[in-house]
């Protein structure tokens, strides 16, 4: 019975993240527009965009290889698997043991690796520019993320995400310096990984500072739809991760009945809404950085996460 329930939770949450990913993007867009005193598109617009893209034919560059055509699906799949392993409204995920937090970070690394390769495939300057900058950003963001994972793992005594979340949701954690540092570092990493301001501007195509959009410039039709969906999914993944780790209240523990799970679902949706609004507000209140200022920001994240980990190595109670 419990197995079936856990499988159900796992399956539900797997489809939930995909289902709400465009919505979160839509809410962020809408919120940004409203804050700029614009009317803004409907929050359902991303769904329509995705559907339209999927129905269109693909216009493929003449010298694009098989890799270029396979990458959108691989990127989407790797991101989806990673997102499906993040506890959203319940921790009793059936497959949480198949990959721990380090493996989730590495899965996102795989997705990025393939996307950057695709940027190089057609052999246009924009694609290479995007790939090269994306990998530079990742080279700093990934260690920062890994060290944040270290702090959490040392606190909870496990790298298993479900166990970590259960520990953090339980009593006896309290306010900790190391957790504060981990939160700041994780937020910076999330902004960089999701190509948001101040690191990258998601709403531009023709600007020399762009990173992610330059990399996927050659994509069209269903391929572009997959990549957009994967990007939205990644945003949801990071928001869910931050929510599950730092505001874990309301998350249902395994073995609890249907009621707490429904409540957890409600909490989760609210958290996502708050996250999307907060992201839009933050993006509007800050300017985009020059590309070569980004290492300073990410370096700060790296140092903060290292310091957090170091504190925990010195004493588990910090």
């Amino acid at each position: 019975m419990e197995l079936i329930f856990n499988l159900l939770v796992q399956g539900l949450q797997m489809f939930l993240v995909v289902a709400i990913a465009p919505l979160v993007a839509g809410v962020t867009h809408r919120m940004r527009a409203r804050l700029l005193r614009k009317k803004g598109a409907s929050i359902w617009q991303p769904y329509r965009d995705l559907l339209r893209l999927m129905r269109k034919e693909v216009v493929l560059a003449e010298n694009a290889s098989w890799l270029f055509r396979a990458v959108p699906y691989l990127v989407f799949a790797a991101t989806w698997v990673a997102a499906a392993l993040i506890p959203t409204f319940a921790t009793g995920l059936q497959f949480s043991w198949s990959a721990d937090l380090i493996a989730i970070v590495a899965l996102l690394g795989s997705a990025r690796f393939f996307l950057a390769l695709a940027g190089m495939d057609v052999g246009t300057p924009f694609g290479g520019l995007g790939s090269s900058r994306e990998m530079m950003i990742a080279a700093l963001a990934e260690p920062a993320m890994m060290l944040t994972v270290f702090s959490l793992a040392l606190l909870a005594g496990s790298t298993q995400l479900s166990t970590v979340v259960e520990y953090l949701a339980g009593p006896g954690v309290g306010l900790r310096v190391s957790l504060g540092m981990a939160l700041v570092a994780l937020v910076i990493v999330a902004l960089a990984e999701n190509a948001r301001i101040p690191v990258d501007n998601p709403s531009t195509h023709l600007e020399l500072t762009m990173v992610h959009e330059a990399m996927v410039l050659e994509y069209s039709g269903r391929h572009l739809a997959m990549i957009e969906l994967a990007a939205a999914l990644k945003l949801v993944l990071y928001l869910s991760l931050i929510a599950a780790l730092f505001v874990p209240f309301g998350i249902a523990a395994p073995g609890q009945g249907v009621g707490p799970h429904l409540l957890g679902l409600l909490y989760y949706l609210v958290k996502m809404l708050v996250g999307a609004v907060a992201l839009a507000t933050f993006e509007l209140s800050i300017a985009k950085m020059r590309v070569f200022r980004i290492p300073e920001l990410l370096g700060a994240a790296l140092m903060l996460s290292l310091l957090g980990t170091l504190l925990l190595f010195v004493s588990r109670s910090l």
Binding site: M54, E57, V58, E62, A77, V81, F126
Partner: peptide
């Protein structure tokens, strides 16, 4: 990964579109 990638590819090719046209790179 293999499962979800093939599922996504299958679903899109089955229900959305499978059209493809080669053209010069956009850039």
């Amino acid at each position: 990964i293999a499962g979800s990638a093939s599922f996504a590819a299958w679903a899109i090719h089955r229900f959305a579109s499978r059209g493809l046209r080669r053209a010069p790179a956009w850039d």
